[in-house]
Design a protein around this nucleic acid. Sequence first.
DNA 1: CGGTATCCTATAGGATACTG
DNA 2: CAGTATCCTATAGGATACCG
Lengths: 118, 118
Amino acid sequence: MYGVEPGDIFLADCPARLAVEVIADKWAVVVLWGLNDHARRHSELIDLIGGISKKVLTQTLRRLQTNGLVTRTDHGGVPPRVEYELTALGRTLMGPIRMLTEWAEQNGDAVLAAQEAG
Amino acid sequence: MYGVEPGDIFLADCPARLAVEVIADKWAVVVLWGLNDHARRHSELIDLIGGISKKVLTQTLRRLQTNGLVTRTDHGGVPPRVEYELTALGRTLMGPIRMLTEWAEQNGDAVLAAQEAG
DNA sequence: CGGTATCCTATAGGATACTG
DNA sequence: CAGTATCCTATAGGATACCG
């Protein structure tokens, strides 16, 4: 009914739901974006992003790791040096994310206006 | 430092953060997707989506409304008839969302494999 | 430096029942 | 039909302190 077809986002086990699951938290997209150019260290991301705590950054990175989007490399030594980097899979996600951020740059004002009006 | 430039997602008030704010909940993208083709009624969305409660659907629709992405039209009468439809602004967001769902269709298996491995 | 550990609060979201 | 109302729980996420 309603013309639902195979592959539709509505099916509970549909892959499209998975995309939502992956990016639908407060920091995932921001962190991925921070890894766009090249590998970065934990403290680098903390400074770069701003407003995220160490705990939450670690949590977010772990989730991204679990989803196969980011690798964690411990170079050892003292002081510690750990680098996070996009996987090949993670890089494929940057295209859609870039679209989203471009949309936001172009339409952010309209959203804010709607928020203030409503 | 770290080559942060104006417009970067990292600035706290950057528009790109707004995109995350708009789509980063469990149901927003799914509901928008449900309105892709044409206006739909509340009960239609309930049946179509599956797994969402009336309360949560209403909440999600209200948020989308507040963000200027969806309109709510009460046609009155008994029984009630209320239709939700994408605004022009909402339609501009469907491009990026389509990219996301396409990414998920192509890469969903890889994410699942990573989840099971990790 | 790169984390844990601990504690806390707000809120998202689910279940169920009721209403105009 | 399209919601509210109510209650509930899990968890996301923030603050702070400590550790190897």
